[in-house]
Amino acid sequence: MSIEVKDVMGRTAVTVLVQASFGEIVAAMRRYAVDAVTVIDAERRPIGVVSEDDLLLKEIDPVRHSVSIFESRRRRRAHDKAAAVTAGELMTAPAITVTPRTSVRDAAQLMHARQIKQLPVIDVVTGRVIGVLRRRDVLRVFNRPAAELEKDVRTALPEGVPFTVEIDAGVVTVGGRVRRRSQAIALAEAVRAVEGVVDVVSEVVCDEDDFVVVPPLM
């Protein structure tokens, strides 16, 4: 079973309007104990995100009012943010979003690839923000009840074969017998793909090795 964003997301998203001031953004972050807020337009559609890192530039950029022509685009953008006073000027845009039906695995890969801490969740019809997915929400899949996790693991295993399954802190040990080594490898990968599995220990025995070692070309 693929766990979707709707199963773990936060139902309340902390948002600010594009014209919100620096002080209003800081106040919202402190009030709701979050490290980023979603910037929305008048229709509650996300247009960007302001994070603590964006706000910190105000403090750590000592030359924010002078820009060298030799600076990179990224560095110039940092200077601009250091001098910014509204959400529209501070935000990183466009907002990277997910929907309730996005798989948590895909969302996690997106977070890792883009190096972001949270994703606004939008309604697929209106495009409006309806929640937020944070990194801590993604990590909740590793706290699944053992019985629930075992059920999904067994669903991933081939039918008709008496496999044994043991789970300890998300580590799944699978035992049994298959005909070919390639089947044992595929089985372990299928279990590893189950949401909430931390690692797989395969104790599956195979009757024949169907992997052919090709000698290197001379």
Rank of each mutant, 00 (worst) to 15 (best):
G175L: 01
L217E: 13
I130C: 05
A193C: 01
H112N: 08
P215E: 11
E150L: 02
E71M: 13
R76S: 03
T99N: 01
A20Q: 05
T92I: 04
V26W: 05
I69G: 04
L57F: 15
G176W: 06
A84P: 14
V49M: 12
L149C: 08
A33P: 00
S72F: 11
V194M: 04
D137H: 14
E159T: 13
V125K: 10
P158H: 02
A95Y: 10
V178C: 02
R180A: 15
L57K: 15
K6Q: 14
T99M: 07
V37L: 05
V214P: 00
V205Q: 11
E159Y: 07
T97A: 04
L139V: 07
T164G: 15
K58A: 09
I122R: 00
V14N: 07
F22G: 00
A147D: 15
A87W: 12
T97K: 05
V174Q: 03
G127A: 02
C206Q: 08
V39A: 03
A186F: 02
R73H: 08
S103F: 06
A169S: 12
P158I: 04
R136A: 07
D199S: 15
G175K: 01
V125L: 06
R73T: 11
R114T: 08
P62F: 12
V37A: 06
H79K: 10
P158T: 04
P62W: 13
L139K: 00
M218P: 08
V198C: 00
R105I: 02
D137Q: 09
P215A: 09
V172D: 01
A36D: 13
E150W: 04
L17E: 15
P46I: 10
D61P: 06
I40L: 00
V204N: 01
P216E: 04
M29H: 05
R74E: 14
